[in-house]
């Protein structure tokens, strides 16, 4: 038994070092902007760049839009599958797994190809080109992010629905005279709160620093800004890395908090 304990400790220490060292190295580095002394001047300088605020804000708005669209799409679908059309479950689950098969870079390639010009069906235009204006490109960006977050959001919501007896709750509400809107809004969603919140936070963590799709749709998001900053500055990117790490930590900590006691949902996103 002693030997096992030792080995367990060594593996654990290795794992912890692997996790901590890059963060520690980056943190130390981020404090060295002023020569000879440790200071927060890299952080001041990073925040002082108006581009930072602009792109960070943009990415946050995109994240919020993604979360809203994703919830509107996933919650009624998962609820309906659970309640009325369980035979469609394999089909729906198959679709939610597709983003695993289609990497972000392929997705954005296909989206640009499809929506970069007017969409036509048998020669009849049904959709204008979406990459022509900033607003319509942002729409495309949000849709792409919804695709990326779909597997995680769906699983979070589905786990939440499975944890309660949807059918009984719905029938009980119906027998008391509630309509569909009331049932979803007053019964199902309040009981799903922690599942929805963890799905939302996970989506947030995926979207805010995202690079691939934002780059190729040429939108002023935080990811591309950070990558560009890395090309010509040294200390500021380190400072922003620490900041976004702290934000990821915050999001995961919140998920931990809201799902405490319940079964753990999927806590990871796509890269």
């Amino acid at each position: 038994m002693r030997k096992v304990a030792w080995v367990a400790w060594i593996i654990y220490i290795f794992g912890i070092l692997y996790f901590v060292l890059p963060l520690f190295g980056t943190f130390i580095f981020s404090l060295q902007k002023s020569r000879g002394v440790l200071s927060l001047s890299a952080y001041q300088s990073a925040f002082a760049d108006p581009k930072f605020l602009e792109t960070f804000l943009f990415s946050n708005v995109m994240a919020v839009c993604t979360i809203i669209v994703s919830l509107l799409l996933v919650v009624p679908t998962a609820y309906w599958v659970q309640l009325r059309v369980p035979s469609w479950r394999p089909a729906v689950e198959f679709v939610t797994l597709l983003p695993f098969v289609i990497p972000a870079i392929v997705l954005v390639f296909g989206l640009i190809k499809t929506f970069g010009r007017p969409v036509t069906i048998f020669g009849v235009p049904v959709f204008p080109a979406l990459t022509t204006s900033a607003l319509s490109t942002d729409f495309l960006l949000v849709m792409a992010y919804v695709v990326l977050s779909l597997p995680y959001m769906y699983r979070a919501v589905d786990n939440g629905l499975r944890a309660m007896d949807v059918r009984v709750l719905t029938e009980a509400a119906q027998s008391l005279g509630a309509g569909w809107g009331t049932i979803l809004w007053r019964i199902i969603i309040p009981n799903l709160r922690s599942a929805l919140l963890s799905g939302a936070l996970l989506t947030f963590a995926i979207v805010v620093g995202e690079l691939t799709i934002a780059t190729f749709l040429a939108r002023p998001a935080f990811g591309p800004y950070l990558a560009l900053l890395g090309n010509h500055k040294a200390y500021e990117p380190a400072a922003l890395t620490i900041i976004s790490f702290a934000l990821t930590w915050l999001a995961m900590g919140l998920i931990d908090l809201v799902t405490r006691g319940s079964k753990r949902g999927p806590l990871t996103g796509a890269h």
């Binding site: 912890i16 996790f19 060292l21 890059p22 963060l23 520690f24 190295g25 980056t26 130390i28 580095f29 996970l202 963590a205 995926i206 620093g209 995202e210 690079l211 990811g223 950070l226 990558a227 890395g230 990117p237 380190a238 922003l240 890395t241 976004s244 790490f245 990821t248 930590w249 999001a251 995961m252 900590g253 998920i255 931990d256 753990r264 806590l267 990871t268 996103g269 890269h271």
Partner: peptide, 30 residues
């Protein structure tokens, strides 16, 4: 451990690259 794992598995992309440059790059910490 689980929170650590959740954070680290989501900590990918540009920021992760920077963190490794600052760690195992030519002038990195390690």
């Amino acid at each position: 451990t689980l929170t650590f794992a959740a954070v680290a598995s989501n900590f990918a992309g540009v920021t992760l690259a920077f963190a490794f440059v600052n760690t195992l790059g030519r002038t990195g910490f390690v």
